[in-house]
Computed example of a mutant assay.
Amino acid sequence: MAPTKWVVDPIHSEVQFKVKHLMITTVTGYFRNFNIEALTPDEAFTNVERVVFTADVNSISTNNEQRDTHLKSPDFFDVEKHNEIRFVANRYEHVSGSQYKLHGDLSIRDVSKPVTVKVELGGIVIDPYGQTKAGFTVDGKISRKEFGLTWNAVTEAGSVVVGDEIRLHAEVQLVKQSV
């Protein structure tokens, strides 16, 4: 049996991140342009052969143009040299019920590190247009400093401006492709 290919439905998916600002509030950002492709041995998503996620760093949005420009600068993502974030999954582990862990390598700037994210399979349905769709909620955490995103500043009171822990969250809908 040939593997099943799935691609992201960008209209029904979103990828966001959250980081502490001044250690007292949380700022949320999004990647407006991203891609996800998956190969599964069947349609059940009980196993995954490969998942590749890419995000266009130029599409970052925190609802603040000045902050977005700073995030694209060499202080953070350095989009002139590194315009893509990439995650390639190499293992899909069943935890219990609809809960899974997706293990893979995350590449930001010129640094690649192993990362594990939690995945909840929301279900697989056929939409009104006859397309088979699978829905997922994905959550994870990374240290931005481990990926070379080390810029920071200190307030007069000694607090850091940007936290190290980045919380990742995605709502993803994948569409089965005809072979």
Score class of each variant (00 low, 15 high):
Tyr92Lys: 02
Glu120Ser: 13
Gly122Ile: 10
Val88Lys: 06
Arg86Lys: 14
Ala134Pro: 11
Glu156Ile: 04
Ala134Trp: 09
Glu84Cys: 04
Val172His: 10
Val117Tyr: 06
Phe136Cys: 07
Val172Arg: 11
Asp164Trp: 00
Asp56His: 03
Lys118His: 15
Leu149His: 12
Thr155Phe: 01
Phe76Tyr: 04
Phe77Ile: 00
Ser73Asn: 03
Gly140His: 12
Asn63Trp: 14
Glu156Ala: 10
Thr137Glu: 12
Val52Asp: 02
Glu165His: 06
Lys133Leu: 09
Tyr100Ile: 13
Lys113His: 13
His70Gly: 04
Thr62Gln: 01
Ser98Pro: 13
Val88Ile: 07
Val111Trp: 08
Lys118Thr: 15
Gln131Phe: 10
Asp105Gly: 13
Val119Glu: 11
Gln131Pro: 04
Glu120Gln: 15
Val161Phe: 09
Arg109Glu: 03
Lys145Val: 13
Lys101Pro: 00
Lys133Tyr: 03
Tyr100Asn: 12
Leu106Lys: 02
Arg109Phe: 06
Val175Tyr: 00
Arg109Cys: 05
Val117Cys: 10
Ser112Thr: 15
Arg67Asp: 04
Tyr92Thr: 03
His94Asp: 06
Ile166Tyr: 03
Ile108Gln: 02
Val79Gln: 03
Phe53Thr: 06
Asp78Ile: 01
Ile108Lys: 00
Val57His: 01
Tyr92Phe: 08
Asp127Phe: 01
Ile142His: 05
Thr69Asp: 15
Val111Cys: 10
Ala134Leu: 07
Glu171Asn: 14
Gly158Ile: 09
Leu174Tyr: 10
Glu171Phe: 12
Ile60Glu: 00
Ala157Lys: 07
Arg67Gln: 08
Glu165Pro: 03
Glu93Arg: 12
Thr54Val: 07
Asp78Met: 01
Ala55Cys: 01
Pro114His: 08
Tyr129Arg: 12
Asp56Lys: 06
Glu146Trp: 08
Glu65Ser: 10
Ile124Ala: 04
Trp151Lys: 05
Leu71Asn: 02
Ser73Arg: 01
Arg67Thr: 06
Ser159Arg: 13
Val51Asn: 09
Gly122Trp: 05
Tyr129Leu: 15
Glu65Met: 05
Gly104His: 01
Val95Asn: 11
Ala157Pro: 00
Val161Pro: 06
Ser107Asn: 05
Leu102Lys: 02
Val160Gln: 07
Lys113Tyr: 08
Asp127Pro: 03
Val95Gln: 14
Val79Asp: 05
Asp139Gln: 14
Lys118Asp: 15
Arg50Val: 01
Glu93His: 09
Phe53Trp: 09
Gln99Trp: 15
Ser96Gly: 12
Lys145Pro: 06
Glu84Asn: 11
His82Gly: 02
Phe76Asp: 03
Thr69Leu: 12
Tyr129Gln: 14
Glu84Met: 12
Glu156Leu: 04
Ala55Pro: 02
Tyr129Phe: 13
Asp110Ser: 13
Lys72Leu: 08
Asn83Phe: 11
Ser98Trp: 07
Ser59Phe: 01
Thr150Asn: 14
Ser96Glu: 14
Gly163His: 00
Leu168Cys: 09
Lys141Ser: 11
Val125Ser: 09
Ser96Asn: 15
Asp75Lys: 07
Arg67Pro: 04
Ser143Gly: 06
Arg50Asp: 07
Gly148Ile: 02
Phe76His: 04
Val51Leu: 14
His70Asp: 07
Lys141Asn: 10
Val162Tyr: 08
Leu168Ile: 15
Val88Leu: 02
Ile85Trp: 03
Val88Gly: 00
Glu120Phe: 09
Val154Lys: 14
His82Gln: 05
